[in-house]
Simulated assay, not measured.
Amino acid sequence: MLEYISGTPFLTWRSILDRVDPRSTISSRKASSSSDAFILDLYRNSLPLEFTRKDRCLTLERLERCIHSNYGASRFAISLFGSVVYGLDSDSSDSDISLFDAENPDGTRPIVTQGTPYDLRTFADHLRSSGFSIKAVITNANTPIISAKDPSTGIELDINVNHLNGSYNSLFFYHHGRLSPTLLLPLAFFIKTWAIQRGLSSSTLGSARNVTSYALLLLVLTYLVEIKAIENLFQQRSGSGWVDRDLVVQSKKGPPLTWKQRFSTGRGDGLPGEELVPISLLQAVEGFYQYVGRWEPMVSTEMVCLRVGGRTKRTRVTPQATMFVEDPFITSKNATGGVNASTSLLFFQEARRAKDILNRGGSVQGVLGR
């Protein structure tokens, strides 16, 4: 039975770590081709080991004890977000955490922060006293964080306080993954693997050269929505499960802004939905690189916009020839905003290379350089 943080649509961290991971139920035995079987096996084999799950539990139990002993047990709750929520994590993935504040459920920052985790430097001292090592305390960012590590397990944490946009987008991707467990996530993992191996995606590259996993997932999902291979939970009209909240997003450059978080959780009520196009994983991979190829000559004037279900005319000016993948949860934000023109060009060049390999009869393994 899944449990939720009281008053929120967010799963508790225990429910996330204890639930059945979608990768554990995937089988390639009935795959329609050897290429589909390879992609499914690639995704399934990324499932973190059981000892990683147990180590994450031990670390979060330690974090929870620290929070309860210093700030009480009722106000702040651990909300996991990122790849571990929707099933694209690995053994080496950090744990991204937002501390949900029950007194400010919309993400508002209180005026008085003394004696709360919002005072990050004091919070970091409490973490040290609880046995965590502190790598960094970053207070001058749009999302201030504590970067920490549990020496007893090796698990690394990035902790913010009540910046909930990551929790909302992770919930959205979680529900999308449940809609199509053998399409969206295996395809996204393949594209993520390709991007890493081609030097396009890694936090070590720096923001100007890193097409983030989040941006890639948005791009893959928008592509699948545009070709009608998967429903768009922003646009679903029928169904009984909905997330409908206001989210206040803090900014160091100006006043806080409020964004509407409204999407379906995919729990239908039996009404007919949009007819979807069946597609194999090989067809999806081929189609993705073709989709990127069609976007390339229009990249200066078009953006990828999941809310409208595909590519659309840019509404904001960015440097010419740089990618614009709109963040559907904070629509003023470009999910590829840090990527420079040369990295955008390299991304399109690598996509053309992959498309050419497949057009010449090459394999999906060849696309990954295997």
Rank of each mutant, 00 (worst) to 15 (best):
G254A: 12
S35Y: 11
G309A: 09
S170V: 00
L346C: 12
D101G: 05
T301S: 04
R44W: 00
W242I: 01
S28V: 11
G362I: 08
S93M: 03
G273L: 07
S130R: 09
F81C: 05
L224H: 07
Y289F: 15
G241P: 14
L205R: 15
F189Q: 02
G270C: 01
F189R: 03
L358Q: 06
S6H: 07
H126T: 00
A148W: 14
I146Y: 11
Q365W: 03
S34M: 06
V225C: 15
V84P: 03
L185N: 04
Q235G: 06
R245D: 06
A102L: 09
F123E: 01
P22H: 04
S363T: 15
V299N: 11
V85L: 12
R29Y: 12
A141D: 11
M323P: 04
T116A: 09
S170M: 07
Q349G: 03
E156A: 13
L281R: 07
I146A: 12
G87T: 03
I145R: 12
V211M: 13
G366S: 13
S207Q: 15
V317C: 06
A335P: 04
L184N: 04
I196Y: 06
G361C: 10
Y86M: 07
A341W: 14
Q235I: 08
I16D: 07
L2Q: 08
Q320Y: 12
D18S: 05
I39W: 01
S15I: 09
Q283L: 01
G72M: 14
N162R: 07
P186C: 01
T258D: 08
T25A: 11
C66K: 02
Y86D: 07
T318M: 10
F347N: 08
T113N: 00
G273T: 09
C305Y: 05
E274P: 15
T265I: 02
L345S: 13
V304L: 10
G72T: 02
L281S: 06
V112M: 05
T12R: 11
P297H: 02
G310L: 06
R44N: 05
E350S: 11
D41R: 13
P9W: 00
D94I: 04
T12K: 06
V299I: 15
S74Y: 09
T322P: 10
G239Y: 02
N165P: 05
L127F: 03
G287Y: 10
G199F: 11
V325G: 05
K54P: 00
I78T: 00
